[in-house]
């Protein structure tokens, strides 16, 4: 079973994501800040982390870079409400693609489910 970590400080967004992903047969954990995410990522294994960019204290970007250092096998999906967001070069270097960026609000969460599956199976990678 694919293990997913949802990082979002918006409770409503966070809980609904967890619910939907669980309904879609993922094993899901959630945290509301970067520090918690790092602690949990080190402690437990996750296939994918779904990261909101605007987080208190550590931003989503910084979290991804830090987590990548600490847990090199972890994959990331960015889920953001910031319009016009662009992947930074550092993020690109660690393998993030525009396909891994999902804009809030999504019309259909199944898109995200498909995105996670592809990311884990490595289908989208050349």
């Amino acid at each position: 079973m694919i293990k997913v970590l949802v990082v979002d400080d918006d409770v409503s967004v966070c809980k609904s994501l967890v619910g939907f992903l669980e309904d879609s047969n993922f094993e899901v954990a959630s945290v509301s800040s970067g520090e918690e995410a790092l602690v949990l990522a080190i402690k437990e294994y996750f296939d994918v982390a779904i990261v909101d960019l605007r987080l208190p204290e550590i931003s989503g970007d910084a979290l991804i870079l830090k987590a990548h250092q600490l847990v090199p096998g972890l994959r990331f999906i960015i889920h953001t409400g910031s319009v016009g967001y662009r992947l930074s070069d550092e993020l690109k270097q660690i393998g993030l693609l525009p396909a891994h960026v999902f804009m809030k609000p999504m019309d259909d969460l199944n898109e995200l489910v498909e995105g996670i599956k592809k990311l884990v199976t490595g289908e989208e990678e050349e």
């Binding site: 609904s16 939907f20 309904d23 809030k104 999504m106």
Partner: peptide, 13 residues
């Protein structure tokens, strides 16, 4: 967008 995501995602769930 965040509240909208909250609304839409929860409704979908």
């Amino acid at each position: 967008n965040n509240p909208l995501a909250g609304i839409l995602q929860n409704v979908q769930v």
